[in-house]
Nucleic acid binder design. Structure first.
Lengths: 337, 337
DNA sequence: ATGAAAGCGCTAACAA
DNA sequence: TTGTTAGCGCTTTCAT
């Protein structure tokens, strides 16, 4: 590693002269600047980030905690985060918490000693079920800002980025109603996450509020334990052949539903409209392609970074915490009319 | 941030005493050690990693370059990397190169100044097509070890972890032959990546070597530009109805092929056996579930970390570079007999 | 048993 | 215009 000192000694000047010269300081003569820069390039000098961070008390690094990187939703977020961070010259250091509260605590612990200027995170499942929040509060009290996205802890006072799951389900359901569907089922495979409940509420609301739609809300659900989703869907469609609208509020059930319906001889979308919630790009794994309600995952990432950097760089102004809402988009494809 | 100095002044001892006490140095009296540790806990002292790294010239951090985080294969790798790194007390700092050579260079540049003890990376597509390797060599010459996985640069002398794509395709093809299939097609959607070529070789070899199988190797391929994969597959199966075996060497074509065949009225797997290469967990998005050749992604991650840490911690012993091979697994499901 | 001092690589106030 | 010095937080050698 080439250091300032190395440059200084080979040039026979002082370290501070070199330091200033590299920053084009007006204090230094044109000529010296040139000499310094030349030798710096020649020896491939690169400033030591660690030393800079130590000096400046600023790391230009964001700690990111991801509950489950195998979930495409989160990898998309990570993608958005990285993109936006890079724009502003920030690095990202990623920790995977694997849905574990303990890992979450450890990760926070490990990085909250000057390694990082702030955190962007989504709570581990365990953190949500146990409603554990002290570890977050500690960090914030220490003066390190946190931005939470998607799975947020309501009782922690920090900036947040969430999605409007309620509205998304509401609009998807309205789309089905507007097609003139008369037996619209909601299919659920989520496991007690707060977002699932909001989606159900949105579905209910759309149906109850509609004057044209006559039936009651009808909700089917299954978990992984109860055998294959495909089998469940097949049985459901067979038992109730009048189902003509289907809103699947999890990732992949939509694709499976299309396949199951087609094997039962149904025409999609003439006989049955299907809309899925998707963070995975799985919409073209059936034919026709699946109409989805899509989370704008990369947008969430971008928004989070913006909010965090704003905090980091203007931490003097004491602002109230804000919560940003990112809307879903209804991407119409072939499984709806 | 609480520092050693803070502890020292509140206790009225010197900084070095505190430092030693926290490490249970025998130089320090039992009593002082206790006092120091108590106050440290009380004030929630956490050693500053930056300062330590600067001092020790060791960061306990691994730089990871990922070409495409939206590709499940790579997120799985990342998962495996994190898991293994955590075991050894290492942090991971992730950079997404987005298949761009320039970003790859920048990332390497940014971190190769003491921020990181070594790199684990898979080459960006652009890096492979342009066969650009100088940036890697520079890093290695500087003394920072690199481990490459999957998409490796052959001309760079460093540890590597690769998968036996050749063998995997060979075995998958043999499976189809052993079923008595007589018209086995390989379908390719990869874009000039080295792995694709190996898979093709494996397919060829299995076919040419077989005594029972009579036909010639038949390779179909398409790129994203040429319109939808589904349409291509549909046309292919229609044009040549005698195809009874299909090896798809990319991620999702397998699922699409099953759907396309079924819509053409074919029975899977009676009329047509399909095997896909998969890193995505998409095998159950068709029915019956797709038989796949699966990359042991997390194993690759683990292996890479082990090799890198070995380099980092025993860099004195000059060892020759080694290349580890991770095998695929053939996961038989419903789309084969 | 404890402390002073130097140094990791860098910056910036101050001195020359 | 250039150099000296102190300091970011920590460790470690060498006094005391």
């Amino acid at each position: 590693m080439v250091t300032l000192k190395d440059l200084a000694t080979t040039l026979g000047v002082s370290v501070s002269t070199v330091s200033k010269a590299l920053k084009d300081s007006p204090e230094i003569s044109e000529e010296t600047i040139k000499r310094v820069k030349n030798i710096a390039k020649e020896l491939n000098y690169r400033p030591n980030t660690l030393a800079l961070s130590l000096k400046n008390r600023k790391t230009m690094t964001i700690g990111v905690l991801i509950p489950d990187i195998l979930n495409k939703f989160f990898s998309k977020i990570l993608y958005g985060l990285e993109l936006e961070a890079q724009k502003s010259g920030y690095q990202i250091i990623t920790c995977l918490t694997n849905e574990s509260l303990e890992r979450e605590k450890k990760a926070l612990d490990l990085l909250s000693n000057g390694s990082v200027d702030g955190f962007i995170l989504s709570c581990a499942r365990e953190t949500q079920t146990e409603n554990s929040i002290d570890h977050f509060k500690n960090i914030i009290d220490q003066g390190t800002p946190i931005v939470m996205f998607d799975r947020v802890a309501n009782d922690v006072d920090c900036d947040k980025v969430i999605m409007d799951d309620y509205k998304a389900a509401y609009q998807a359901t309205k789309k089905l109603i507007s097609e003139g569907r008369e037996n619209i089922v909601l299919f659920d495979r989520l496991e007690g996450l707060s977002v699932g409940k909001l989606r159900i509420l949105g579905y209910r609301k759309a149906i109850e509020q509609s004057t044209e739609y006559q039936s009651q809300p009808k909700i089917h659900s299954t978990t992984d334990d109860q055998g294959s989703t495909t089998e469940y869907l097949t049985k459901m469609l067979k038992d109730d052949p009048s189902i003509d609208g289907l809103l699947c509020i999890d990732n992949i059930a939509g694709v499976k539903a299309v396949g199951a319906a087609q094997r039962l001889g149904k025409n999609i979308p003439q006989d049955l409209s299907v809309i899925g919630f998707a963070s995975d790009d799985i919409y073209d794994l059936c034919y026709p392609k699946l109409t989805t309600v899509a989370q704008r995952a990369s947008q969430i990432g971008q928004q989070s970074v913006k909010m965090l950097i704003d905090r980091i760089e203007n931490n003097n102004e004491v602002k109230h915490s804000t919560t940003a809402t990112v809307n879903f988009g209804l991407d119409l494809r072939g499984t709806t009319l």
